[in-house]
Amino acid sequence: MIRAQSLTKVYGDFAAVDSIDFHVEQGESFGILGPNGAGKSTTMRMLGATLQRTSGDLSILGRDPSRDGPTIRAHLGVVPQQDNLDTELTVSENLYTYGRYFGLPRAYLHARIDELLAFAQLEDKREAKVDALSGGMKRRLTIARGLVNEPTILLLDEPTTGLDPQARHVLWDRLFRLKEAGVTLVVTTHYMDEAEQLCDRLVVMDAGRIVAEGSPLGLIREHSSREVVEVRFGSDRNAEVAGQLDGIGERREVLPDRILVYTDAGEADLQAIVARGFMPMTSLVRRASLEDVFLRLTGRSLADE
């Protein structure tokens, strides 16, 4: 479906995307995880054939986007980071006009719009103006719009950023259905839970480079312990306490607001910390997540922006 080799995008002397390699297979749900500014959106726009690469090879659906852009785009669905819906048109008009841009016939679109409104759970908003929709509804409409041409690949750039938790879950459910229907998904996100929920396989990007690749579970296994103990002693004491925890857990990480102890036996290690006479203000034992993978690989937290 997608094959990138040494894919690079340079702005001036800044490499937004710095020689990355990856591939996406048919029916796969592929994630690009990384903090803001990692090069995710730049990569996404190159995949969407709306941004020329500086160098490297890129093949989408077997074609080169710098030569066959319109042909490739005819088979892509694009959900940009910011909804660029037409706020002067109604919900169904947005779907209709967008379908017309692909040259799709009117009769096809009328039937397709019914399907898409049902899929996006916007049937009763058909004649509503876009301005009147909630953030989650706008997002679902943008996704429905991206599906109007029955795309082979759907590109989603930060699909749930800015949505409340309930709206995110509705959206994930919709995307899951697409995945089940065999649509190839490419998703960028800086939410680890989103990546864990949606992606079969993902790459972790940082500063324009891919720093890791694998399945969510595989990455966690490879780069983190099974469990993590989070303890807080107050921002002025965390570093001091961390220095006296030698021998507890496999590895420790000091963040400004907390200490992370990587271990395979969380409860036992928490007790060991307390046994040394350190009473944390709050403590938590949890399973390791992609957040920990990212921290391990880059030394920074995903939420550090």
Binding site: Q26, G27, L61, P70, T71, A74, H75, Y101, F102, G103, L104, E115, A118, F119, L147, N149, E150, T152, R177, L178, A181, G182, V183
Partner: peptide, 19 residues
């Protein structure tokens, strides 16, 4: 909800004028 996986199911592009 129907989806397609083949490349040929929809018109690939239209002429400059039609676009």
């Amino acid at each position: 909800m129907t989806t397609s996986t083949g490349l040929a199911s929809r018109p690939a592009r239209h002429s400059a004028w039609r676009g």
